[in-house]
């Protein structure tokens, strides 16, 4: 049981950071972004070039990766999102699909399908919790996720600019009319989302030490589900969603290991996601059925 929890929490941090990026963008713009995974992979390739090929320190590689991903998010907003003819959230969501596909294709084009090796962030010794070997990177991922989840929430509520982001999600036009530069809000949101995608990917403990095209997308799928499970608009909810899926995954791999199910991670995520959506779809109906009939209903 303890093992399941520890193993679950190890992955939870990464899922949660991916989910936070999704929620941040969705909260402020109403757009569901599907490019986070590939933005993250791109960051890993940048780090690979700097650290493995150029032999620079890991931190320099990480800084470079975050710089590139953040700049990419900003460029995406400035060059495309801002200039869209039909700027409804669904079209912008499809636009992010295009971005993800483009980055994925570029990864194949420039690096090919063969795996590239990238060192983990901390080479410090790992330690054991409840019989599970835990590395410093894994602890860092969870700490970063929790700090970001609750820290960002505080920023949104406490600062004028954060309040402006909340207001923008309710009525973007009115935000401009109280004098808050809406373009700055969207720029910050899209680059912030991309930054979080890069960060999430960097926090992945490279279990096999390799990066391939689409590598971070496989984790982002889970992060996206975590964001939906957390309610899509709640930053702490995203962290909770990540923890739920992390533990569900480790429980499944522990108790279903004999069944030898291929792609167990996705099967688990899919099952939890469908269950949550089914509950949400049926909840109003259930509540009505279960509620005691109001007095006088038969009058």
């Amino acid at each position: 049981m303890g093992q399941v929890l520890v193993l679950g929490l190890i992955n939870a941090g990464i899922y949660a950071v991916f989910a936070l990026g999704v929620v941040l963008v969705y909260r402020g713009t109403g757009v569901l972004t599907f490019a986070q995974g590939e933005i993250g992979t791109l960051g890993l390739y940048v780090a690979y070039v700097l650290v493995t090929e150029q032999h620079l320190p890991w931190l320099v590689g990480a800084a470079g990766a975050l710089l590139v991903t953040t700049a990419l998010g900003a460029a995406f907003e400035l060059l495309l999102v801002r200039r869209m003819v039909a700027a409804d959230p669904v079209s912008t969501a499809v636009l992010t699909v295009g971005l993800g596909l483009t980055i994925l294709a570029c990864e194949f084009f420039f690096f090919g399908a063969s795996p590239r090796v990238l060192d983990p962030p901390f080479l410090a010794a790992s330690f054991t919790v409840a019989g599970v070997v835990v590395t410093p990177t894994q602890v860092a991922a969870l700490v970063v996720a929790l700090a970001l989840g609750f820290g960002l929430q505080a920023v949104l509520r406490r600062t004028d600019f954060g309040l402006g982001i909340l207001a923008a999600s309710q009525d973007a036009a009115a935000v401009r009319l109280v004098g808050i530069p809406l373009s700055r809000i969207t720029l910050v949101l899209w680059s912030g989302g991309a930054f979080l995608a890069g960060l999430a990917a960097l926090l992945v403990e490279p279990t096999v030490g390799t990066v391939t095209p689409g590598y971070a997308s496989e984790l982002f799928v889970v992060g996206l589900a975590a964001a939906v499970i957390g309610g899509l608009t709640s930053l702490p909810g995203a962290v909770v969603g990540g923890v739920v899926l992390g533990i569900a995954e480790s429980a499944a791999s522990r108790y279903l290991s004999d069944a030898n199910i291929p792609g167990l991670r996705y099967v688990t995520v899919f099952a939890v996601l469908l269950a949550v959506l089914l509950y949400r779809a049926l909840a109003p109906e259930l509540r009505r059925r279960l509620a005691p009939a109001p007095a006088g209903a038969t009058a």
């Binding site: 004028d160 309040l163 402006g164 909340l166 207001a167 309710q170 009525d171 036009a173 009115a174 935000v175 009319l177 109280v178 004098g179 808050i180």
Partner: peptide, 21 residues
């Protein structure tokens, strides 16, 4: 603005704080 676009899910005071941005 048209339709009295106040920010419905913010409090009165938060609306005013944004007004004074």
């Amino acid at each position: 603005p048209q339709g009295r676009q106040v920010f419905p899910q913010l409090t009165v005071e938060e609306n005013l704080r944004l007004g004074a941005y």
